[in-house]
Each structure stands twice: as C-alpha cells, then as structure tokens.
Nucleic acid binder design. Sequence first.
DNA 1: CCTGCGATTTGCT
DNA 2: GCAAATCGCAGGC
Length: 207
Amino acid sequence: MTASPSRVEADGALAFGERLGEAFFDRPPRDVARDLIGCGLFHDGAGGAIVETEAYERDDPACHAYVGRTERTDVIYGPPGRAYVYLCYGIHRMFNVVTESNGTAAAVLVRALQPQVGLEVMELRRGAPREAQDLCSGPGKLCEALAIELDETYSRLWEPPWQLTARQTDASTPEIVAGPRIGITKGVELPWRYCLAGSRFLSRSAG
DNA sequence: CCTGCGATTTGCT
DNA sequence: GCAAATCGCAGGC
C-alpha cells in the first residue's frame, strides 16, 4: 500500500505536483506556512492535502527555540526542510517543518490534513472507527494517523518515507484564512495560523 | 451544542 | 518542580 500522488484523484481530491525541494523551505516560516496549504503530505501509506498550519519563528515567545539553542531546539536552528517531531503533554507527537537557513530558528507546525490516501490504515492507527474529518484534524491526530515518529526528527522531507508535494500547477490558488494560533499561552495575538477557507477538515473552524 | 478534567513524558529553571 | 503547540471522555444545557 504505497501512497502515490499520481493516484490521488478519486473523490474529487486534488492531484499533486512534484516533491517540494530544499529551496521551498529556505524561506520565512509565514511564507512557508501559507504556501503549504493545499500541498500533499504522505507518509507510510497514508496522507492527503494540508489544510491547516502555524508559523513559529525567532523572537516569537511561542517558539520552542525562543529559549535559545539547546539539544531539543537544535534542529529548529538547523538547515531547512527537516522534520521536527516532539512529544506534547507526554502523549501526543507534533510534526513540524523546519524553515529558513542554517542558524535561524523557524518552523511550521502542520495541524490538519484532508485525508485522501490510506483511510483504512489511518482508522486502524487511530484506534477506532472514525469519520474522515476526525482522522487528521489536529496535530496529534495527524501524527498518529500517518505514523510519524519522534525519531524522524532531523530527517529530510524530500526523501522517503516523506512525500511532500506541491499543489497542482494548474490549480487555482486556494483561499486562505489567517488567525491566532491554537493552544499556546505566549504570542497569542499573532495571526500566524493559516487555514484553507471553508475546509471541513480543520482542527477548529477558521473564525 | 458546550465546559471541565485527567493522562503522561520531557526539558528547562 | 512545573508547564506544556492535545485529545477524548463525561456531564450539563
């Protein structure tokens, strides 16, 4: 059961373009976060279209790297296009994309997908029968459904097992809504959460 | 529909 | 020692 973007066309789903390369990620996190909406994310036999992201950057008190470069935050300061997966509340894994060049702390949290491939395996991993809109509608759910693991931190997102693919080149630009980030206590006012307008697959409605 | 709470691990003070 | 980029369940309206 391989997730091949070329097969992602059933159910009115988007088709996807080529794999995103390192240069895509070597930009400010808000640009990357916005441009990731509508892109494809596939991992270990499951995936779909990204519908919700959040940007975190240097001098942003909500960013893990705000405390400086430590063993945990080293990856965020490192080269772009690497995965940063960490454990939240001792239970849930969170998947981030590292952006900007080596030496600058910046990352994008991927919060929700519209599932398109591997619906059955996602349900198995999520542990119970679920509606499609409850499979990947949150950062913890997404990592569980796609089997994204902590030890994949530092891995390159343009290599297996990742398939991070561009929006279809002939697709119209999706309508994107920005608003405050979710679940944080610092930097609450910054509107650095990006959602696909009208999507039913968000962790929360876009307001 | 909504609100509150417990689970469970880790990194940093 | 404590706070944390969450989730699912219980209970009330």
